[in-house]
Amino acid sequence: MEKFERLISTAIPLPTENVDTDQIIPARFLKATNKQGFGDNVFRDWRYHKDGSINTNFVLNNTMYNGSILVAGNNFGCGSSREHAAWALAGYGFKVIISSFFADIFKGNALNNGILPVQVSEDCLKTLLQLIKENPETQIDIDLQNQVLQIVGNVIVEKFEIDTYKKLCLLNGYDDIDYLLSNKDKIVAYEQEHQF
């Protein structure tokens, strides 16, 4: 996994609430057996009309907005456990998702793919969306080491929470398999003690 320490980037606003993983990557794209290529189909049915033409009303098709940060409405990533959603977002180039609330499984999937989910207060989210709307060039600075979100050149600073272990994994580019395998002895001992 790639390391993540700090990111300064403009952001793409998607204020819709309850964005489910079926929207992030529709089921008909789940037939691949590798992790590549999902980025092309991220938010497929919002980006394109059914006849294949581009939906110019959707924010990813608005050239004013760019960047590797997605600022999304409450309860982002709910629904299906498909990790394809994280692969699609990562494939498209997102490294950070900011929302006031993330669904559990999505949050874990994001972290396991080097995407940092940054949970902020409802007020902070509103402000961010407003600032980006007013000025699409607004830069957001995400500092994982200090767990701080800052608007570049602005007074807005927000601390965010992250599990200590997950933070270490991201900072160092480790993954859970490495950790679990280093505990094989304990796992075998546990099995011997508990015969279910």
Partner: peptide, 20 residues
């Protein structure tokens, strides 16, 4: 409970998951 594919790989490798 449902898990993502990275976790499927973790369970394949260790029959365990890291969970809070």
């Amino acid at each position: 409970f449902g898990i993502g594919t990275s976790q499927v790989a973790q369970v394949f490798a260790s029959q365990c998951l890291l969970m809070n």
